[in-house]
Simulated assay, not measured.
Amino acid sequence: MLKREYTQMSESYMVGALLAVVGGYLDAYTYISRGKVFANAQTGNIVLMGLNFSQGNFSGTLHYLLPIIAFIVGVVISEAIKSRFRENSVIHWRQIVVAIEVFVLTAVAFVPNGSMNPIVNAAVSFVCALQFECFRKYTTTMCTGNLRSATEQLFIYKNTKNVQALTNSMQLYGIILFFILGVVLGTLLTNIFMEKAVLFSCIILAAVFGTMFIKDVR
């Protein structure tokens, strides 16, 4: 009898696609409703921080520095969770990360738009760092790496006719499309619901949390 092999659903394409939607959604949410700050794209925040600093706008510099620091903290916390709960047989350590994401984003929804936006942006960047660090098979919080890898795999397919390279390429381009879908949804829903719109991303994350209880049979 053949022995079935199980893989963790957190590394499945479906979970990657859902998280890419969340990644794009949160970028649109913070940019539109929380003072034009990117939740995921810390490169953009670093550039804007440098521009404000060079112009002597130190409050603007701090505005973009806080999410950068929060992103760093998020990476550290995610590694600590992984180290502490990696061998837990009851719940996967990535589910703990997703639960923290839902908790933080739910709290964010009830913070009014205004003077607390820098704290909110830091909280969302913290969440994005958790996701970026813990779900590595597909980059779901930014697109540059996926764009490079997808094109690289397409080039390999052109030269070698390796079908797996073509599959890899199409999957990565697909993740980019799901990210764009998240941006579109985030834009539409944030313009309607403003700060409460972040709750829709919690629904997707709850689906991801539940999905990870399923064993993916290979």
Score class of each variant (00 low, 15 high):
Thr61Lys: 06
Gln42Ser: 01
Val124Ser: 10
Tyr31Thr: 06
Asp216Ala: 15
His92Lys: 08
Val90Thr: 15
Asp27Glu: 03
Phe135Asn: 15
Ser89Arg: 13
Ala28Ser: 06
Gly44Met: 08
Phe135Gly: 12
Ile214Ser: 13
Ala107Ser: 12
Val183His: 03
Ser149Gln: 08
Gly50Arg: 10
Ile32Asn: 00
Phe213Leu: 09
Ala107Leu: 12
Leu130Gly: 13
Ala207His: 00
Ile204Ala: 10
Lys36His: 07
Glu79Met: 03
Gln131Val: 12
Thr167Ser: 11
Ala70Pro: 08
Glu5Asp: 09
Val111Lys: 15
Met212Glu: 03
Lys82Val: 09
Cys128Ser: 13
Leu154Asp: 04
Asp216Phe: 06
Arg84Phe: 09
Ile68Lys: 01
Lys215Thr: 06
Ile156Glu: 03
Lys137Tyr: 12
Leu105Met: 08
Val73Asn: 05
Arg136Phe: 11
Tyr25Phe: 05
Val163Arg: 11
Asn113Ala: 11
Val15Pro: 03
Lys215Glu: 12
Leu177Lys: 00
Leu154Tyr: 02
Asn168Ile: 08
Phe193Met: 05
Asn162Glu: 07
Met49Ala: 15
Gly210Glu: 04
Pro67Asn: 10
Ala70Ser: 11
Pro112Asn: 13
Lys3Asp: 01
Ile68Ser: 06
Met170Asp: 03
Gln8Glu: 03
Leu66Asp: 02
Leu185His: 00
Met116Leu: 03
Ala109Val: 10
Phe85Trp: 12
Met170Gly: 04
Phe126Glu: 08
Ala123Phe: 14
Val217Cys: 11
Cys143Phe: 10
Thr139Gln: 11
Ile156Leu: 09
Ser78Met: 04
Leu130Asp: 12
Ala107Arg: 10
Leu51Ser: 03
Val217Lys: 13
Arg148Tyr: 08
Leu51Gln: 14
Leu147Asn: 10
Leu130Asn: 13
Arg4Glu: 15
Arg94Leu: 00
Ser89Tyr: 00
Phe179Ser: 01
Thr160His: 01
Leu66Glu: 00
Pro112Trp: 15
Val183Thr: 08
Cys143Ile: 12
Asn117Val: 06
Pro67Gln: 07
Phe135Leu: 13
Asn40Met: 07
Gly114Tyr: 10
Gly50Met: 08
Lys137Met: 14
Gln131Gly: 14
Ala20Gly: 00
Val90Gln: 01
Phe155Met: 11
Asn45Gly: 14
Phe179Asp: 00
Phe85Pro: 00
Ser125Ala: 14
Thr7Lys: 10
Lys3Met: 05
Phe155Ile: 09
Thr211Pro: 04
Gly210Val: 13
Leu51Ile: 14
Pro67Glu: 08
Val163Gln: 13
Gln164Glu: 04
Asn88Ile: 02
Leu65Phe: 10
Gln164Trp: 05
Leu181Val: 08
Thr151Cys: 07
Leu154Glu: 01
Asn45Phe: 10
Leu130Lys: 11
Lys196Gln: 02
Leu199Arg: 05
Met116Glu: 02
Leu205Tyr: 03
Gly24Tyr: 02
Leu166Gly: 02
Asn52Ser: 09
Ile69Tyr: 11
Asn191Val: 05
Ile91Arg: 09
Arg86Thr: 05
Ile91Asn: 04
Arg136Ala: 09
